[in-house]
Structures are given as C-alpha cells and as structure tokens.
Simulated assay, not measured.
Amino acid sequence: MSEKRAGEAANTAVKDDRATTKTDTVGKPAVEIDEKPVDDTPPTGIAALIAKVMALKPVRVFLRFGSSGGEIMASGMSFQAVFAIFAGIWVGFSIFGIVLAGNQDLMDAVVAQLSNAIPGLIGEDGAIDPKALSEARILGWTGAIALVGLVLTAVGWLASTRDSIRRLFKLDPPTTNPVLLKLKDFGLALAFGVAIILSSAVSLISNQGLSLAFDLLGIDTRSPFAAVAGWLVGVLVVFVFDSLVLAAAFRVLSGVKIPRRRLLAGAAIGGAALGVLKILGSQLLGGATSNPLLASFAVIIGIMIFLNLVCRVILISATWIAVGMEDAGLDPRALTPEQLEVERQKRVAAARDTLVSAERERLQNQLETVHGLARRRVRKRIERLDELDHAEAVKLVEKR
C-alpha cells in the first residue's frame, strides 16, 4: 500500500510542469496541479505582425544561428581557413604539378576555378602568383613545411567545421577514435583537392563542348550570346561543385543523420548563396578594402572577409537544415524507437524525482516545527518517500 500511494503521488509529476505540493486538512502530503487561466485570445495589430514574423523559418534560422554562437564559430573557422588554403594550394600544386604541367589548359582551368572560388586569391593582383605555383615542388624544404602546415591547419579547420555544424544541430562531439577522426579529416582534405581538379576538368570539357556546338550552329564564339552561355555553364558547374561539397560537409564530415531530400535542399541553398558571393566578390571586397591605410595588405584582408562570409553561409545552411528537421520532428541522431522510449522514460523518471525531492524537503522542514504524534506522522511520510526510491515500478533515476 505504501508503494501504491507513493506511486500515485509521483505519477502526477508528468502531468504538468507547474505541479506543486501542499498539506491537506489532515496534514497528509498531496500533489495538485496549479491551474492558471490561459488567455486564448489571438494577438492583434503589431503584436500579431511580430508573431508572424518571428514564426517565419528564415527568422528562426538566424535566431538559432545567433543563439548557438554562429558568429564566433564562423570567425574562428575563417581564421583557420586562411592558413589551410595557402598550405593546401602549395601542397596540392606540388603533388599534382607534374600532371598539370603537361596540360596547360587544365592548369589554367584549375587556376580559374580557384580564382573564382576565392576572389583575389590567385592572379596578377592576387595573393598568389600562378607562375610560382607551376614551380611548386613537395621535395624541397618549403614543400615539407607546407605539408606539415596542411596537416595541422586543414585538418584543424575541418575539425572546427564539424564541431560547429554539430553544435547547430545540438549534438555532442563525435565519440570516434581521435586518430581515426584525424585520418578521416586528412582523407577529406585530399578528396577536396581532387574534386577541385575534377570540377576544373568538367568546366574545361563543357566549355570546349560549348565552343564546338557553336561552331556547328554557326554562332560566333565571340558574340555576346556565346559569352553569356559560357558564363552560365561556368556558374552551373561551380554551383554543382559547391552544393556537393556542402552536402559532404553536412553528412560525411559532421556525421549528422540527415534525410537525403533535406540534405540536398539545404546544400543547394548554400551553393546558391556561395555562387552569389563569388559573383559579387570583387565588388564586396573592393568596398571593404578601399581604406588607404590598409592598402599594403588589402588582399589578405579581403580574402579573410570573403572567407568569413563563406563560413557564415556554411553554418547558416546547416542551421536551415537543423530547423527544418526540428519542425518535422526528426532526430538528427537517428535513434531507434526503443532508444526514444528509453529517453522518454528517463525524462519521466527525472520529473518524478524532482517532485519527490521537493516533497521530501518540505517534510524535512515541517519535521523541525511539529512535535508529538504530528512529528511521528511526518516521519512515516518521509519513510514512504524513501521506499519510493527502491520501488521497481516508479524508479526515479537510472542508478549508475
């Protein structure tokens, strides 16, 4: 009977988070729900407009991005990305330089791809001279230093990106073996370099195919129409490349369980945003680096500003997917129904434990103010609550 009474008192903990305890007319501890009148009248006027705006998905995405520390995470990622990119480009051209040196068209396509990806990075007025890249070799001491820098910076940037994305999904860091995780990041860095070369080759082949098609149709390749068509093909190739890279970052790098449809949609949104950044990159960087005091290192500042914007796009795209999954009730951990039921039972047990602890504290305080038979009754009720901790049916917390 004591367990039954204690169970009935504890079960009320899950009915409402406003449960309170009191003593009834005979001094018996009881639980009741503090029901408060709820105003169901819908807001009107400005309040209604504000409520509608706050309910919009883009607004909720930016709010979650800010509340999760997205600004700080994007800044840290962009700082690491600067060093990772320079080391990666040097080592990449050192490794693939032999292949690229034998095909000048492919070499130019790779340089153009990198230049379009990060305005101001490579070129006559950029931070890197293309001629110096063609002479890069990994066998020298400079190549060895750059290789060590690539391992430390590129892998570190990927690790920061993974942790930032998982934080936006409200997930803990992965529990994978740290050594295996670093090897995975290094493999992804190499795969990214290979993907740049492949996308450059696709862009080169598509441009050559487009020129051949214009020749067959009798269209002048120097006409405005041909120029616009070639530009659109280049934009499409870059969009597909960026979208695939983002999808790999969200799914493979971070290890988040994202449904394919939502993954592709979020990656496409991010790829489109990155495309707009690249198209407007020169204008954006030109305005940001117009200060004459910064002229001596304006290129580096411009690259850092651009990379900061890119990192923001990456994290905001991840936040878009996270908010969409939350709205649909999808758990990014991909738990089984049995695991979800275990978590539900733990939450119920925690609620019961909170209620019983509050009741025990109230009785302990009451024990100091009563005497005689009343004191004995209070002690009996404390003993019943203690028995509740050992009852199998209403187990409060998991014993570890």
Results as ranks from 00 to 15, higher is better:
328 A>K: 14
127 A>S: 09
109 A>S: 11
373 L>F: 13
375 R>L: 11
113 Q>F: 01
108 D>A: 15
391 A>Y: 12
9 A>S: 09
233 V>W: 01
261 R>F: 08
323 V>D: 02
116 N>T: 09
220 D>W: 01
255 G>C: 05
251 R>V: 01
21 T>P: 02
105 D>S: 15
222 R>S: 15
76 G>A: 05
219 I>Y: 07
39 D>I: 01
265 A>P: 00
342 V>C: 05
224 P>Y: 04
305 I>A: 15
395 K>A: 15
16 D>F: 07
31 V>L: 09
221 T>K: 13
140 G>C: 08
270 G>E: 04
306 F>A: 04
335 L>Q: 12
284 L>W: 05
243 S>V: 00
395 K>N: 09
74 A>H: 04
376 R>P: 03
45 G>H: 07
168 L>E: 07
3 E>Y: 10
162 R>V: 02
265 A>V: 15
126 G>L: 04
216 L>N: 07
393 A>I: 15
46 I>K: 13
292 P>E: 09
345 Q>E: 14
134 S>A: 15
313 V>T: 08
319 T>L: 02
303 I>F: 02
121 L>N: 06
253 L>G: 02
70 G>S: 03
191 A>F: 00
7 G>Q: 12
40 D>K: 09
260 R>K: 13
375 R>V: 00
244 L>P: 00
355 L>N: 07
100 L>R: 04
331 D>N: 13
274 L>D: 01
203 S>D: 14
72 I>V: 14
190 L>F: 07
301 I>R: 01
260 R>E: 08
208 Q>S: 12
204 L>C: 02
271 G>R: 01
197 I>R: 00
341 E>A: 15
214 F>W: 02
61 V>G: 08
305 I>S: 03
272 A>M: 11
361 E>G: 07
394 V>W: 13
120 G>C: 03
264 L>A: 10
153 T>I: 00
357 S>R: 14
38 V>A: 13
160 S>G: 11
44 T>W: 00
44 T>S: 12
122 I>W: 03
14 V>D: 07
176 T>Y: 10
272 A>T: 10
86 F>H: 04
397 V>P: 02
52 K>Q: 12
316 I>L: 12
111 V>T: 07
55 A>D: 15
84 A>C: 08
200 S>Y: 00
67 S>V: 14
49 L>K: 14
320 W>V: 14
66 G>V: 11
70 G>H: 03
128 I>Y: 04
142 T>M: 08
98 I>G: 04
131 K>I: 10
48 A>H: 06
215 D>S: 14
7 G>K: 05
247 A>I: 00
119 P>N: 09
151 V>T: 06
28 K>Q: 14
275 G>R: 00
118 I>W: 02
100 L>W: 05
107 M>G: 12
119 P>A: 10
203 S>W: 07
236 L>H: 01
